[in-house]
Write a protein that binds this DNA or RNA. Structure first.
Lengths: 209, 209
DNA sequence: GATCTGATCGAAGGGATCGTTG
DNA sequence: TCCAACGATCCCTTCGATCAGA
């Protein structure tokens, strides 16, 4: 079911076309528009599970262009959410702090972000929130010359050149940022592995960047 | 405004009948059902002294390539004299705000404006009117140094130099104004995205500046 | 701070590409 | 020599705000 808004006079006109008592708006409109009921319940577009283009190196520009004019927009969750949606305005969930990475990577806002640094840092922030202790011990991962995490900007700066440190929001940590997307994924993968996350989740999260 | 519920397939069918980008459900249904808009209260029409070509067009400000076979398109019903032209869209900016951005960007006056700052602010004003709550949370968007929205002039002034704050009419908000047109479009795009508008509408509105 | 709009161009950020290392 | 992993240079995009133009 979708909900749309109609101007009063139009609504009144449609209501006036009622033929049988108890007809729904849909019934009336079907008759007026000559649209027969379609039986096959449209199984909501799945659009989940991206095929994983093997493409070794990141790339994935993630084209967004929603061509059709008005229409749908993704369902908030696979759950059979009846209400929601509306003409133009889509209900925005996002209450700032997703409780878990699982939630984060499904969050609409998050998915719409095209800047990978932003996602990178948000993920780290949530990972820390989920388990500061584990996060803490896992931050010892590092590269050949650079260290990836530290509790101060200067530490990161002194371990390489132009590492572009950024603070991880709501966290005492800083991270290296001057890396390509592939490396950002690696860092997340390594970190989560050390923290003990499952393969599946790790993949899903890395993939989300 | 009335709200009705439609079955998904019917909704999709109606959405598929969109002719102009940004059309509201009402606009589409009026066309399909051949119900002309009731010029509510029918205020204004003052500036009606101009000749106004009698054709169906209405919009189309310039370069219209009137191809021969024009045919139908919303005939405002034979009732009123042929001149009518505008539908409810013609609301005059001052005092009465168009009920929706969809309407605003189709408004004749609006489209004739060449000053983008004016359009920019009018759009913001209507967006606020449509959903103050969403607008409120969406105003946190900002640039690298500047903040774009605030509830006082001073806030904006202190976040950059020569930001040229302007109050958004009928709103507690102020906006940055010292930007090129491209950025004004971006700001609208970002704001509407956060407010949950569909891609199509967002594009249409941004485009209208 | 007082004319106002907004394009132009300089500054900063993002991250792919390519060089380096083991 | 070749390969895989890593580093960081540098091109492109995004943002700011000066100043040309009206």
């Amino acid at each position: 079911m979708k909900t749309i808004e109609l101007e009063d006079d139009l609504y009144r006109y449609i209501a006036s076309q009622t033929k049988d008592i108890g007809e729904s708006a849909s019934d009336i409109l079907r008759r007026l528009l000559d649209v027969s009921a379609n039986v096959s319940a449209d199984l909501t577009n799945v659009e989940e599970s991206q095929p994983h283009a093997v493409d070794t190196n990141s790339e994935t520009k993630q084209t967004v262009t929603k061509s059709p004019v008005v229409v749908e927009e993704e369902e908030p969750t696979p759950v059979s959410a009846p209400i929601v949606v509306e003409t133009a305005v889509e209900v925005v969930s996002h209450s700032t702090l997703p409780a878990s990475i699982a939630k984060l990577i499904k969050n609409k806002k998050f998915k719409e972000t095209t800047v990978s640094v932003t996602k990178f840092i948000q993920i780290l922030s949530v990972l820390y929130a989920e388990n500061p202790k584990e996060f803490d011990t896992a931050t010892d991962i590092k590269g050949r010359k650079r260290i990836y995490f530290a509790k101060s900007e200067s530490e990161l700066l002194s371990a390489g050149s132009t590492t572009k440190p950024r603070q991880i929001e709501n966290t005492p940590y800083w991270v290296i940022t001057n890396t390509n997307t592939g490396r950002k994924r690696n860092i997340i993968t390594q970190l989560m592995a050390e923290m003990g996350y499952t393969h599946a989740l790790i993949d899903a999260v890395s993939q989300s960047i």
